[in-house]
Amino acid sequence: MKLITIFLIAVSLAMDAFAVSISNGVCTRGFGKKDAVRQAAFFGGFQFIMPVIGWFLGCSVKTYIEAVDHWIAFLLLLIIGGNMIYGSIKGGEDDNSCSTSLTNKMLFLQAIATSIDALAVGISFAILDVNILEAGIIIGVVSFVISCLGAYAGKYLGDKLQSKAEIIGGVVLILIGTKILLEHTLLGVG
């Protein structure tokens, strides 16, 4: 497989992480460079490791993973997004800024949810006999960079939309999960 093809796959896989990064940048009070890098490290790390795991799993579990990956991603993003919306509504009218903290647990769950498709791609790479170390590094680095860009875009938007940022972020996560679910169940994508 050509490097340009792997790069385009990497960009495609990073789009969910990009959208979640925007949401985190919007909704995290005091979001800064350290948060952006930590978030990008989670997303890039999982985008690296999931195709590697998928590659090792190989063809034997391909059908099983493809059957449930969209449900796992949907449920994780629904829970995270729902909690963000609930926290914003429960926070009271006096709170004009997001109260979401960017915990390692939250980043871990988001990283899993946004990298499930990379696991399936890794299985495909095993079938196609792709150099998984090279592909994994490209996917991880691209996801890291795109996640940083998304985080800064979200931070900018968060400064402009403080009062509604957490609700917007939660809705974005739920919409991403719904998009993944619909693509896999109705459109047969993935």
Rank of each mutant, 00 (worst) to 15 (best):
S147K: 09
L57G: 06
F46Q: 00
Y156A: 15
T114K: 09
S97E: 14
V37Y: 05
A73G: 06
M1N: 11
A165R: 02
S23T: 09
L13G: 07
A14K: 01
G44S: 15
L186E: 01
A41H: 04
L119T: 04
M15G: 03
S12R: 12
D95I: 15
T114E: 06
I138R: 14
C148T: 11
I4P: 04
G140A: 00
K160T: 03
S60G: 15
A10H: 10
I53F: 03
L128M: 12
K155N: 12
G122I: 07
F18Y: 11
A10Q: 03
A17Y: 04
T28P: 04
E183S: 12
S101Q: 15
N96P: 01
S60K: 10
F144G: 05
S88K: 04
L8Y: 09
L57P: 00
L161M: 13
I176G: 02
L182I: 15
G122C: 00
I72M: 07
Y64V: 13
F31K: 14
S88L: 04
Y64W: 09
N24P: 03
A118I: 03
R29P: 11
M15Y: 04
E166G: 01
P51D: 01
G87R: 06
S99D: 10
A40D: 14
T100G: 05
Q47R: 04
G45Q: 03
D16V: 01
G154V: 01
D16I: 10
I53D: 08
Y156Q: 07
C98F: 08
L175P: 10
V26D: 02
A120E: 04
S115A: 12
F46N: 03
S23R: 01
V189K: 14
L78E: 13
A10I: 01
I9G: 00
T114N: 13
R38E: 12
K155H: 13
V189Y: 15
G158Q: 02
M106D: 15
L173G: 07
S147F: 11
D94M: 10
S12K: 09
I168M: 05
V68M: 08
A73C: 05
S143F: 00
G32W: 12
D69P: 10
T5G: 12
D159V: 07
G92S: 06
K62Y: 13
I138W: 04
D16H: 13
S60M: 13
H70E: 08
V172S: 02
V171Y: 09
N96Y: 12
S124I: 12
L102A: 03
D35G: 10
G150Y: 05
K105Q: 14
G190Q: 13
N96R: 14
P51K: 01
D95H: 15
V130D: 00
N104A: 08
S99Y: 10
A41S: 15
V145E: 06
G188V: 11
G190D: 12
L161S: 08
S60L: 12
T114P: 14
M50H: 09
A41G: 10
I139M: 13
G87L: 06
C98W: 04
L133E: 05
I127R: 10
F18C: 04
